[in-house]
Simulated assay, not measured.
Amino acid sequence: MDICIVTHKLLKGDGQARVNYEIVNEVLKRDHNVAVLASYVAPDLLLMPNIKWIKVSVKGWPTQLLKNQIFAIISTILLLFVKKKYDLIMVNGFITWVKSDINAVHFVHSSWLKSSAHPFRLRKNIFGVYQLLFTYINSIFEKISFSRSKHLVPVSEKVKDEILEFTNHTNLHVIMNGVNTREFYPDKSMSRQKWSLPENVPLALFAGDIKSSRKNLDSILKAMVDVEGLHLVVAGSTKGSPYLKMAEQLELQNRVQFLGFRNDIPNLMKCADFFVFPSRYEACTLVVLEALASGLPVITTYESGVSELVGSKAGFIISHPEDLVGLGRAMKLLSTDDNQRKWLSINAREIAEEQSWESVAAKYIKLFEEVSSEKELMVDVNKRKPKNFGVRNSGK
């Protein structure tokens, strides 16, 4: 197959970019040809045969909103000249104005716009207004993009339901995100000394953006007040974060350790007892899958698409992100019940093994093959249709 994929970036360190990285990597291993329209492609992918990078530069534009619109315009112009070369075109949300065969849906702006945790509802300033404008414009364009795509691939059942709130699209194929099960795996021999973390105490881990309220670190801190003995380690850039001060105000500074941005999350997960991530909105976050692969029981919410995997077998699903009582109860149980934690840990790893990047990429490739065959069949049918040259029957 000759496949064209349109995405902003392909690299290992980001959600959507990581998904596309793994898809392209697996497609290339199977000797298909891939053209990538992107602003950045990981160098290791470019060393592989059968890949062509069509660079879409948005450097110099001042905001992400403008960069996205410029990317869409440039990618549209480029695709108009080359789209007939490919068996199928896959895009990611609203990213181009060209019609696509497959659209991978990693985020639904229309749903985020309604969320009580949207920045505009929390901050009535320039930042809040910008975020409102960003989400509103994307919510309009994503609807157009979905309507111009033959097949949609939501990354969770939650995302699928959100799409169906504003469209009656019939070709939806849920493919959840994956995880590197060789990089993330259980290993209780890992020492906490490297991070100066206390030994022989229950240790919870949170990893993510701690500047935004969407990830809901504030609820974790508030609930921790009533969970005696529990320690929390937080991985995420602390610049501009209000939560260091909140931890002090709640008198948790001796039980909460902020490590800043980390690139050693796999090892950090090996020394934690459980992962807590009560996000206020999430499509299918990779960090929770990484925690499951590391054998960590997970506490999350129904607002996170990955809760479909966690269920009751690998952790606890809090009914609502603001449910401090439920969150505190779950953290206390995982802090004190070793047997429960071990049982959930085993299940977590088993669930993650079914979501390896290889198996997820294989699902995408299977869909590629089906869509490509479907297109070939349609071309065949159209060729066989009798041609009407406009000659009328004279009746003689």
Score class of each variant (00 low, 15 high):
3 I>K: 01
6 V>C: 11
7 T>S: 13
8 H>V: 13
16 Q>K: 06
19 V>S: 07
23 I>N: 02
25 N>K: 14
26 E>D: 15
28 L>I: 09
30 R>E: 14
32 H>M: 14
33 N>R: 15
34 V>R: 01
50 N>V: 07
52 K>N: 10
54 I>A: 07
55 K>G: 08
56 V>R: 00
59 K>P: 01
61 W>A: 13
80 L>G: 12
83 K>I: 15
84 K>H: 11
87 D>Q: 13
91 V>H: 00
94 F>V: 07
94 F>L: 10
97 W>S: 08
98 V>P: 00
99 K>S: 14
102 I>D: 01
102 I>W: 01
109 H>V: 00
118 H>P: 00
121 R>I: 07
122 L>I: 13
141 F>V: 12
143 K>S: 11
150 K>T: 10
152 L>S: 02
155 V>I: 07
163 I>A: 07
165 E>N: 15
172 L>Y: 03
175 I>P: 02
176 M>F: 08
176 M>T: 12
178 G>K: 03
179 V>P: 00
183 E>C: 08
190 M>V: 15
192 R>F: 05
196 S>C: 06
197 L>Y: 03
197 L>R: 05
205 L>A: 09
217 L>Q: 01
225 V>H: 09
230 L>H: 03
231 H>W: 04
231 H>L: 02
234 V>E: 01
238 T>F: 05
257 Q>T: 15
260 G>W: 10
261 F>H: 14
265 I>A: 06
269 M>C: 12
274 F>D: 01
276 V>E: 01
277 F>S: 05
280 R>C: 05
281 Y>V: 02
285 T>D: 07
285 T>Q: 11
288 V>R: 07
289 L>M: 11
291 A>M: 04
296 L>R: 01
298 V>P: 02
300 T>W: 09
300 T>A: 09
308 E>V: 02
308 E>Y: 08
310 V>T: 04
313 K>D: 11
313 K>L: 11
316 F>P: 00
317 I>A: 05
317 I>D: 04
317 I>F: 08
319 S>E: 13
321 P>F: 06
328 G>E: 02
333 L>E: 15
345 S>C: 12
351 I>L: 12
352 A>C: 05
356 S>W: 05
358 E>S: 13
360 V>Q: 09
367 L>E: 04
368 F>Y: 14
373 S>C: 14
373 S>L: 13
374 E>S: 14
377 L>F: 10
378 M>Y: 08
378 M>L: 15
381 V>I: 14
385 K>H: 08
392 R>C: 12
